[in-house]
């Protein structure tokens, strides 16, 4: 199977403090991978590094995205090449309305691919359809990005952006945290609607409940900056029942 993303021996520090310590991961096209793990294990760092946040110091390792060296690319180049991060904490941007952002994002990607820019009519058709899908009212289009949105609305807005951009690789950073059952169903519905043999997803989460709705092909446990255990969806259930301590204990018992 064709690899979408390959991470090899990735080491990342923040303020001189190592966070990722030799992480390896391969995601094939069409697969959904879940990354679980205790707080502070490096899950969000991984998501931010993939999107290109500058505050992280990559001390060694390689990340290959669709045959390109991802770490050499600017955040905007990554986005235009089809990588999308749904933020754990989407920022509020006063004065930039949602319609501007969505249209600029769609057009930036189209322009980079030599495609014609979206016209006003086509854009409205598309955005109305996608907004209905994530149950966001149309008045949100003319409001500033995330300003005054509830936690759940912010997360649904991330999914709306993802649906508009139709990324090849989506990274969802704890998109389920703070969501009620209904919002969780909407978010999962959005993600599942994008499932495609040429598209991959990395779902970072603490909770198994999301993975009941978005069924992953692989589940990985990230602890202390490394992937320490991988399995299929059953691993998520086991983690939910037994907690991360079980993995730690198991690891400690394994002779190195």
């Amino acid at each position: 199977m064709k690899a979408m993303l390959t991470i090899e021996d990735l080491h990342v520090s923040v303020d001189g403090q190592p966070i990722l310590k030799g992480l390896n991961l391969t995601v094939a096209a069409g697969e959904i991978h879940a990354i679980m793990g205790p707080n502070g294990s490096g899950k969000s760092t991984l998501a931010q590094v993939l999107a290109g946040k500058e505050d992280y110091e990559i001390t060694s390792g390689r990340v290959t995205y669709r045959d390109q060296n991802l770490l050499d690319m600017l955040p905007e180049e990554r986005a235009r090449a089809g990588l999308f991060l749904a933020f754990q904490y989407p920022v509020e941007i006063p004065g930039v309305n949602n319609a501007y952002l969505l249209k600029a994002a769609v057009n930036a990607k189209r322009a980079a691919r030599g495609e014609p820019l979206v016209d006003a009519f086509e854009f409205m058709q598309l955005v109305k359809e996608r907004m209905a899908q994530v149950e966001i009212s149309q008045e949100f289009l003319h409001r500033s990005v995330n300003e005054g949105f509830s936690g759940g609305e912010k997360k649904r807005n991330e999914i709306l952006q993802m649906l508009m951009l139709e990324p090849e690789l989506a990274v969802l950073d704890e998109t389920d945290s703070g969501l009620d059952v209904d919002a969780l169903r909407i978010v999962a519905g959005g993600v599942n609607s994008l499932r495609h043999p040429d598209r991959s997803m990395i779902v970072v989460t603490h909770y198994q409940r999301l993975l009941e709705l978005i069924v992953p092909d692989r589940v990985h446990v990230l602890a202390n900056g490394q992937i320490v255990k991988s399995g299929d969806k059953e691993l998520a259930r086991e983690l939910d029942e037994r907690g991360y301590d079980w993995v730690r204990t198991e690891l400690a018992a394994t002779p190195t």
Binding site: K53, E76, L85, V91, G95, L101
Partner: peptide
């Protein structure tokens, strides 16, 4: 970073945020 992560280049993102301000 948020705007860049949506594919908008840094110059355009700075200009848009300045306008928004």
């Amino acid at each position: 970073f948020y705007l860049q992560s949506r594919g908008i280049n840094e110059l355009a993102a700075r200009a848009l945020l300045t306008f928004a301000f």
